[in-house]
């Protein structure tokens, strides 16, 4: 049964749900990491990522009976996942800010509370983590303002590091068209980022062999 295609599993789900959830569970198994990954990269914390991933799979469960299969299952679920993530960004702004633990790099114990999402590397000092969290918040604000399709493309390519080929496949679009749409999305992102956050200033550290830039933002 594990070797069945997505389409065959969807057909079985339509016949079996709600009584028998075995086919649905295989679809969950197949897609849970991919959905969690893309959602996690927007929010950067486990709790939000779990909640939203659950929301995605509940929507899939509730929608399977009506899912017409005009698009592939993967196209459909990526669309639901990116929509849930982007919708949640809107809701988050209306909620009180979430308190996330901030770890001190020396003793790795919880030392203070910060009102932003901070899961930085062990090497990062608290100031860097605050900058990083502000940067994430700013990036998420830009994502909310972007055209939904452009935000979706950036989530898949630059947040989740999906290849152009994979994105073309999941969005059922031509490869050249996807490449150019992602290019235009990056240009649109930069324009909005400039208006909302300042210019993007990248400095390359000599110790990082030039491939991993240090990112700083500079308010104009």
């Amino acid at each position: 049964m594990v070797s069945l295609t997505d389409e065959e599993l969807v057909k079985r789900c339509k016949a079996e749900l709600p009584g028998d959830t075995r086919s649905y569970e295989i679809l969950v198994q197949r897609y849970i990491s991919r959905v969690y990954s893309v959602v996690y990269r927007v929010f950067g914390n486990k709790e939000e990522a779990e909640d939203i991933t659950q929301e995605v799979f509940i929507k899939v469960y509730n929608g399977l009976k009506k899912f017409e299969q005009q698009a592939s299952f993967s196209t459909w679920i990526y669309r639901i996942a990116t929509n849930c993530a982007l919708d949640s960004l809107d809701k988050m702004q209306r909620r009180p800010k979430i308190q996330i633990r901030l770890f001190n790099s020396k003793d790795q114990h919880e030392t203070e509370q910060n009102d932003l999402d901070l899961h930085a590397s062990m090497e990062a000092v608290p100031e860097e983590m605050v900058v990083r969290s502000e940067l994430r918040e700013c990036i998420n604000n830009v994502l909310k303002k972007l055209d939904r399709e452009q935000a979706r493309l950036l989530l898949l390519r630059d947040f989740d590091d999906r290849s152009y080929e994979e994105i073309a496949k999941v969005l059922e679009s031509g490869l050249s068209a996807v490449k150019m749409r992602i290019h235009r999305a990056r240009l649109a992102f930069q324009r909005l980022f400039g208006q909302m956050c300042g210019s993007i200033h990248l400095s390359y550290s000599a110790s990082t062999s030039g491939s991993s830039p240090k990112v700083k933002t500079k308010k104009e």
């Binding site: 950067g44 899961h119 990036i139 630059d158 590091d161 990056r186 240009l187 990248l202």
Partner: peptide, 15 residues
């Protein structure tokens, strides 16, 4: 485009 890609990608390297 290189700057945007690097900015967004850099934020993900910890994960």
């Amino acid at each position: 485009a290189r700057q945007v890609h690097a900015l967004l990608f850099q934020l993900q390297t910890e994960h």
